[in-house]
């Protein structure tokens, strides 16, 4: 019988708190990513070498994705969005290491990531529009929509969680089933497919987080971005 995907293996306990396998893997990934980030950005120079050019390429691509998806200046969001993407990507691909289950294949890790996005939507929305301005976006386009908008806030976070969990977990599950049926080299094509799914799911999770945050920013002032005159007005005011 294959282990239930809804339960996690307890590795050790600290006092009354059981520490499960996904938690250990998550902390190892966090340490690895943090150390890599510290070591790779230690000596940045104005004339970049090969290593710094590669890093700048990654940061540039993320920045450009934020700009084209959210249609805002990417600077305040690149730390959050970039970390989210890199963490989910390394978490999904950590199944390549033998004996390691990706932490995103367990519901708890995905729930944590989803709750972070849930909080970030409120944080960025309130920071940009103010508390009252953000609350007013719930009454867009009419007051009748308030209950639906509130429900939507929860359901889209829930679907974000379940989507990542379902995709990664089903990949791990299919490989486990195939490994129990067939021999050594048979699951390799499916593992390659799993890599693709992992990358696509990391991308989709991040893009959806960006779309949700972007909608929280722009819902209050819908004509600011579709209307090209908005920037002209600003210039005209400066001239006055």
């Amino acid at each position: 019988m294959i282990e239930s995907p809804l339960s996690a293996k307890v590795v050790f306990t600290i006092g009354p708190v059981p520490i499960t396998e996904p938690v250990v893997v998550t902390w190892a990934l966090m340490a690895a990513l943090g150390l890599a980030g510290w070591a790779l950005t230690r000596r940045l120079s104005l004339r970049p070498g090969a290593r710094q050019t590669a890093l700048e390429l990654i940061a540039g691509v993320i920045e450009q994705q934020i700009r084209s998806t959210m249609r805002v200046e990417p600077r305040p969001y690149i730390a959050f969005v970039g970390t989210l993407f890199l963490f989910i990507l390394t978490a999904n691909w950590s199944s390549l290491i033998p004996g390691v289950d990706p932490p995103t294949a367990h519901l708890e890790t995905d729930a944590a990531l989803g709750l972070i996005v849930f909080g970030a939507i409120f944080f960025y929305g309130i920071r940009t529009l103010g508390l009252l301005g953000y609350l007013k976006t719930f009454a867009q386009p009419t007051v009748v929509m308030i209950p639906l908008n509130i429900i939507e806030t929860f359901t889209r976070t829930f679907s974000l969680i379940v989507r990542l969990f379902g995709n990664v977990m089903s990949g791990v599950f299919v490989i486990a089933i195939l490994l129990s049926l067939a021999g050594l080299l048979v699951p390799i094509p499916l593992m390659a497919l799993d890599l693709l799914t992992g990358a696509v799911q990391a991308y989709i999770f991040t893009v959806l987080a960006m779309v949700f945050i972007g909608s929280a920013l722009t819902e209050g002032k819908p004509d600011n971005f579709s209307n090209p005159e908005a920037s002209d007005n600003g210039d005209a005011r400066e001239l006055d």
């Binding site: 995907p5 809804l6 989507r163 969990f165 379902g166 089903s170 799911q201 991308y203 989709i204």
Partner: peptide, 23 residues
Amino acid sequence: FVGLAMIETMAIYCLVIALLVLF
């Protein structure tokens, strides 16, 4: 990609329900 992820979520919901029923 974003749209496919949205559509695919429906299938994933069914998978999660099936796993809940089994496990």
